[in-house]
Structure formats: C-alpha cells, structure tokens
Design a protein around this nucleic acid. Sequence first.
DNA 1: AACATGACGTTGC
DNA 2: CGCAACGCCATGT
Length: 115
Amino acid sequence: VSDTFAQAVYALVRLIPPGQVATYSQVGTYLGSPGLARAVGNALRDLGPTLARDVPWHRVIKANGTLAARGDLRRMPLQARLLRQEGVTADPDGRIPLALFGWTGPRPVSRPSGR
DNA sequence: AACATGACGTTGC
DNA sequence: CGCAACGCCATGT
C-alpha cells in the first residue's frame, strides 16, 4: 500500500503492550527481516511529537537490553522513566532483562494446551 | 543510479 | 568494559 516502511513500524510498535519491550531487530523481524533493525531506528527517529503520542517508541530498545538514543541523550532518561512507569525495570547493570519484559510478538504463541 | 547517514547487531581486539 | 570494523536495510541528497 502507500504506506512507507516507517508507517509499518509505527503500526507494529503501537501493538506493543505496556510493561513489555521489543528490540529493534525484533521489530524488524516481524516486519520481514531482522536486518531491518537500523531502518526501524530511522523510522522511530523520524517520529514526530504528535505521532509519538500514539506510538510507544520508548518500548523499543536495543538487542543487548540497553536503551538506544545514544545521539539524543535527552531521550534516554525519558525512555527509562516511561518504562519504569509501566513497570519495566532494569538490572543493576542498567540493562533490561528481555527474558522478563520481552514482547512475544503481535500474535503470541501462548497455546499451552494447543488444540 | 551512486554516495552518505543512522534511535542497530555481531564479532574481534 | 570500551572501541573499531563490517554487515544490514531504508531514506535523503
């Protein structure tokens, strides 16, 4: 459709529920390829203040569990605060345990009993 | 079409 | 743990 890659990114990030986080590569994977991580970052970087209200960009972090925005350190503390506000805490190392807060994806395979 | 840039990721030193 | 190099994909010039 006429949506750009960025639009797709916003749509997906919008689906990330509070209390959970996704990595750039993860988002990229759901969009088609893990290598899209960079492109995903670009898309969120281009996010405007208006769109930022609809898109929980703070729930997208790096693959190593650290926060991104190394060029815009102003957003770093903000992201940390927003996440903490949702219950997402970091380890003493300053990293977020993806094993606990990691988003399972747009369609979780939560199917313990299977059918 | 080619080159340069970037909220990334992984590996090597 | 910090820094550098390479790979990767989308976008802007």
